[in-house]
Design a protein around this nucleic acid. Structure first.
Ligand SMILES: [Mn+2]
Ligand SMILES: [Mn+2]
Ligand SMILES: [Mn+2]
Ligand SMILES: [Mn+2]
Lengths: 228, 228
DNA sequence: TTAATTTGTTAGTCATAGCTAACTTTTTTA
DNA sequence: TAAAAAAGTTAGCTATGACTAACAAATTAA
């Protein structure tokens, strides 16, 4: 019932809070992250988040002034990046070796990322020959916690006539991911913007498998590399 | 932070208690299992075990009368067997694909066995082509919870002149497992009993890689198949 | 610049899962 | 068969991490 094991001593909850903070601070472009924002992201009450932040401050993973915004210390950031590394490596393993589809992996990876064993994750990395990207196109941090964030240009930021390549999807809901695959899009699909309709800003796109009209909300969740 | 997911709803602790009960009742030959015995096995206080047993009885996984011995219901047994299946499949994966040695796998499998995903474990099973035994020679239950217990004859039960094959080791400590490999024994090694010394019941054995004298305690933890 | 709204904090409660100390029942031993 | 020992139970405590309700501070709008 005791639980020391490898490296750090954080609980699953503490880890999830640090990871959430990292996403809000680094991944999303929200400059300042507040307590209630964190609470909402994690689906907990503001009181719960406040409570946990207090603990993480005591452990020196988080900094903030009373009533002020939140920030991660270097230690906190490192734990978060390692979690993301584990999460993405597991997702890659599930997709590439265990017949999971890209919309099925997140839920299970959310559990697997908390397994404490340095050797496990480094060997898994080696076994897969050090993959660079996860099934959603996101970069996998390396064993030293180095984390390359890929430039995030959304499909919705392009103009009529532009051509781009699908590089990643916003690590989103099962619904969204299923939708993307169902219309025939996959990572590295080449997409041309045919028309942006004035009426509702919906976007007509063309790609290998045909043409589709997608909403702005859809396009906001698709990251691309502009080609033309 | 919520945690429903696949199949059952048991906590890690509840699962570990059911698995422990299963080992004590089925694997070991102790006919009757008591509360304090369970507590000792799990390194918790008798009060803690008693408390958990109460919960597991309420959930209909355990049966016992007040001050009486413990038993698993069919439901409790099934959960335990599924845990053992997961534990042993993960140990097999760690050994055969991730360069873990047989003394390193248990600790990590103890965590991995609690990951809740039917698909994950069945696909892992398929990926490894449905292995029958784990790295310690123990049988892996199949997806239906069918569990073949292999007959457990210990090396210590043999007589001078007998020849046997090492089929399994008692799922034991890192110290023991390291010792076994260091003297050169592996699963399916053929072992001949050269002499049982009267003085201290120590046993002189001969096998491929040479000769060794082992204690009775050692021989109690080695399961064999008598050949001659 | 005051009032309303949003954001953050505190206090107190609950469930889980440990613990110790004290007690009761059962079993063993003398 | 009575006393001692072992086994099992209960009560009451702790820590973690949720929650709600009430309150305080900061920000935004009137
Ligand atoms: Mn994910
Ligand atoms: Mn998680
Ligand atoms: Mn094991
Ligand atoms: Mn376990």
């Amino acid at each position: 019932m005791t639980n020391k094991l490898n490296s750090n001593n954080l609980t699953k909850s503490e880890e999830d809070y640090l990871k959430a903070l990292f996403y809000l601070i680094v991944e999303e472009d929200s400059v300042k992250v507040g307590n209630n924002q964190l609470a909402e992201y994690l689906n907990v009450s503001p009181a719960s988040a406040n409570n946990m932040i207090k603990k993480l401050k005591a452990k020196d993973y988080v900094i903030s002034e009373k009533y002020g915004k939140l920030d991660l210390t270097e230690g906190g950031r490192l734990i978060a990046v390692r979690l993301i590394r584990k999460h993405r490596l597991w997702e890659t393993f599930l997709c590439n070796y265990l017949n999971f589809t890209w919309d099925e992996v997140h839920e299970v990876a959310e559990q697997l990322e908390h397994i404490k064993s340095r050797k496990l994750i480094d060997e898994l990395d080696r076994f897969m020959d050090f993959p660079k990207k996860d099934p959603h196109g996101e970069m996998i941090p390396n064993a030293d916690g180095e984390y390359a964030i890929l430039p995030k240009i959304t499909l919705s930021s392009l103009l009529e006539g532009d051509v781009c390549e699908l590089v990643a999807v916003n690590d989103g809901s099962v619904n969204f991911l299923k939708y993307v695959s169902e219309i025939g899009l996959v990572l590295s699909s080449e997409i041309k913007i045919i028309e942006i309709r004035d009426f509702d800003k919906s976007i007509r796109i063309q790609f290998n498998e045909g043409e589709e009209t997608v909403t702005r909300k859809f396009a906001d969740n698709v990251f691309v590399n502009k080609v033309i």
